[in-house]
Design a protein around this nucleic acid. Structure first.
Lengths: 207, 207
DNA sequence: CGAGAAATTCAACAGTCGCTGAAAACGAGT
DNA sequence: ACTCGTTTTCAGCGACTGTTGAATTTCTCG
């Protein structure tokens, strides 16, 4: 792809340099595909048509590259109001619709998928996932609904959302991947709505 | 731990040999902790108090060790009837109760967690997870319920179950880990019950 | 007791990984 | 034209990985 006649030679290439963003894009794809540990600096550099040392020059360490690549393309302060704004009714459906739309839109370079895949065996990624999905989005959504135990409700939602990502993208469950999106939005939307609004039974009042 | 005076010397140790099962136990713990890729043969051997070469002698390859370690301690043909037997009513709750009980009971050496953690970046593990959770358990449970699209319903259940494992064990969401088990059983149980029995809206009847 | 099978370790090979230091080629300012 | 900072590659180091072949000790059976 990036095999012009100047690439491969030593020293700076002529013209404007977009190698930094090319590295970031390649990193997002690789991290989303393989997770933090299995994605190698060498492979990312090769995808970007660049020497591995250049990656270290720009981002210092592999971890630094990971943090830079996970910088999310969307600001939670903008998306949360769009989900919460129209009111409690249909909240779960809007959240799931937004999530599935995001997955389709981001394609191979999906930071959320990269975080999920990396969280396994890389605690830093698990923390980043908690901070983004939990604190930045779901905690605010749950707080907007005026119900008891908003933090627990946010965690319940997170468990179903992460499960959707794992089942569709990682496990590749066939019926789930092939299912009509509107059906998934309605089914999962009702689940999220329940986790946000339904009364959480106390164990004493068992049924 | 396993530092008797005979260990470390060359050749066979005196007495009965339980090293094979010790290796399997250490492998389950390591695979559950770190996943297939990050768990090293050397670390597993060290935990078992054994030379890495002995692992290869018994199991051939790291993949062979993985397959042997994932041999599940429970037979699906025995557990599925216990869940389905009492009837449709309370099915979801029984399934979730069984799952959470299993997680507590297995402790650190949890093959399900090992499969989830390994599925990322190791397609063989993803296939094993699909075969065990999907085909061996959930497909049968969903088939016992007489509803349309049983395969899709099984996948929906799988997505929530995998999400529970990820959220509690991998992401370690604090409220979810601290929550009362009976509450989780009831909340998740209702979700599973819905996925198994509720009508799946058609996209044409979008309302 | 003697022989073969089993269990166990040692030492090492070949590959990959993240990372480093130096050198080369280019762009921009004076 | 000269200099300086930026971009880029090269070559390599040290650590770690799965795996192997041979050597050593013990057990088992006749």
């Amino acid at each position: 792809m990036t095999s012009s006649e100047t690439a491969g030679r030593r020293g700076r290439r002529p013209g404007d340099s977009q190698t930094r963003t090319a590295i970031l894009e390649a990193a997002r794809v690789r991290f989303a595909h393989d997770g933090f540990r299995a994605a190698t600096v060498r492979a990312i550099a090769a995808d970007a048509g660049v020497d591995p040392a250049l990656v270290m020059h720009y981002f210092g360490t592999k971890q630094g590259l990971f943090v830079a690549a996970m910088e999310f393309p969307l600001d939670p302060a903008q998306i949360v109001p769009r989900i919460v704004g129209p009111g409690i009714d249909g909240l779960g459906e809007r959240l799931v619709r937004f999530l599935l739309g995001l997955v389709d839109e981001l394609g191979e370079a999906n930071p959320m998928l990269a975080l999920v895949r990396s969280a396994v065996g890389h605690p830093d990624a698990a923390r980043m996932m908690r901070e983004f999905l939990g604190e930045a989005i779901l905690d605010r959504v749950a707080a907007a609904v005026d119900a008891d135990r908003p933090r627990l409700r946010a965690d319940l939602c997170a468990s179903q959302i992460v499960g959707i990502l794992m089942a569709r993208q990682v496990l590749a469950l066939p019926e789930l991947a092939a299912a009509d999106r509107e059906i998934l939005i309605q089914v999962y939307g009702r689940t999220i709505q329940r986790y946000l609004t339904e009364p959480l039974e106390s164990p004493a009042a068992s049924r």
